[in-house]
Write a protein that binds this DNA or RNA. Structure first.
Length: 116
RNA sequence: GGAGUAGAUUAGGUAAUCGCUCCUUGAUAAGAUCGAGGGGAGGAAAGUCCGGACUCCACAGAGCAGGGUGCUCCGUAACACGGAGUGUUCCGGCCUGACUAUGGUACGGAAUAAGGAAAGUGCCACAGAAAAUACACAGUCCUGACUUUUACUAAGUCGGGAUAACGGUGAAAAGGCGAGGUAAGAGCUCACCAGUCCUGCUGGUGACAGCAGGAGCUAGGUAAACCCCACCCGGAGCAAGACCAAAUAGGAAGGCGUUUGAGGGCUGCUCGUCCGAUGCCUUCGGGUUAGGUCGCUUGAUCCUGAUAGCAAUAUCAGGACCAGAUGAAUGACUACCAUUCUAUCGGGCGUGAGCCCUUUAGAAGACAGAAUCCGGCUUAUUAUCUGUUCCGGUG
RNA sequence: GUCCCCAUCGUCUAGCCUGGUCCAGGACACUGCCCUUUCACGGCGGCAGCGGGGGUUCGAAUCCCCCUGGGGACG
């Protein structure tokens, strides 16, 4: 329960995995800031992937968004139920929002879906 | 104090908690986890504008086409880059001059894609008589015929001839000024000045500069228009390329060919050369469109010192090892300190604009993220310092 | 990451190569008037643009350079 690491097995790495989640997962829009895809696998730990396109900003902005989401997922993944894949797609305007606001929105969305 | 310009340095630090990636090493149930130690973004990593290294195509060849560069010398692996100079243009200062203008300048600064326009072709709108063979027109001058007045002469009309001083428009008008000369004029001739070309001498490696003599009297601009000249360039790019594993298919039709040569060698064409045989090409159908390892970081590398050189840079000596990720790591948060700015309490210095120390509060901390690696250029951007030019203030 | 291409009224485009006659032409859209009982169609008119900066040139939408913003290809 104290596991707060974030390794490769906790991340979605392959393009075909992303494609599967896009086509079969549930799509939720969160406050106009980002989109969450949720897909129930059979077993295993919860995993996450993040997509930030070049339309959002430069490499610095995109790296910062991905780091914030990784941090949020890392600190909260102990309370998320098993076998869940989450993919987040950032939308324009997210680069202006801070860490606290993103964490709050993310947890609210998960609670609404009763995933934690 | 402000603005411009040139250059140098810098790109906040420390600690605590949680976390990521790579390397070394230890343990175990041996490629998975845990422990220990160490490394982990930039001056532009960016734009991808040039130049290389490296890899493959053939051992990288020739010609044409195409592309690029364009003052000189040096530097360099190379460059369109850098350094030192030359010329031209502009600005300022100074001199000439009655201010302006003009001209000069051994001074200071800035810009400079700066070969050729007396090889050729094209273009030069509008305006203007004319935009490049000064053809024509207007004007001026000489002259023939006719008309009017008629003593000469003057005026007008129609012709012939001469001319480029005169036409004030334009971005640009065919050397300038004076004298002679002439019917009127003209570099037609002459003196001076400016400019062009040729020859010689001197200085310099050279661009070029200076001096002397001569020629012709004059040559518009545009080559970031075509072009000519000189020099350079083979093509693709680490998604290059090599290996491993897995999966599917070993299909049908047509064509060409086996030493007399199909086809291929990754921008075009030709030549030459090489490879080349149940092989190659085209179409249709089917399958894969999920990988892994190497390349992958020790290099035109960085730091210090010496020597050569005005400098860019080079050589030598000693030392150092400094990211290798791949849905892509170097982060999150807290505290303190330091920096800058604004306001403010108090004190000191100075004639003064102001400066220095200090208390408290608030704000700011930019541009931006390696993806094969280097050398440049360009663009974005924080803070400080120094040199220099101009403007302003105080004394 | 590497290599390419494009940018003109609100939209689609012509002009660019070969600079001037272009204060940039056309179509659709918008808008005013006429026509019609009214709408549509038609006729006449109006509005509105060379992505930004610098250079070459007497003169730049056009030629050259640098930025900005879009788009594409490659295992």
């Amino acid at each position: 329960m104290n596991d707060r690491s974030l390794r490769k097995k906790d991340k979605i790495l392959r393009r075909y995995e992303y494609k599967e989640i896009y086509s079969k997962g549930k799509k939720i829009s969160v406050e106009g800031l980002f989109i969450v895809y949720i897909f129930k696998r059979d077993n295993g730990p919860p995993r996450m992937g993040i997509t930030v396109t070049k339309k959002i900003g430069g490499a610095v902005v995109r790296n910062r968004i991905k780091r914030i989401f990784r941090e949020v997922f890392r600190l909260n993944k102990g309370s998320i139920i098993e076998g869940i894949d989450i993919v987040i797609i950032a939308r324009k305007g997210l680069e202006k929002v801070g860490y606290m606001a993103i964490e709050e929105s993310f947890l609210k969305a998960l609670e609404k879906e009763r995933l934690c």
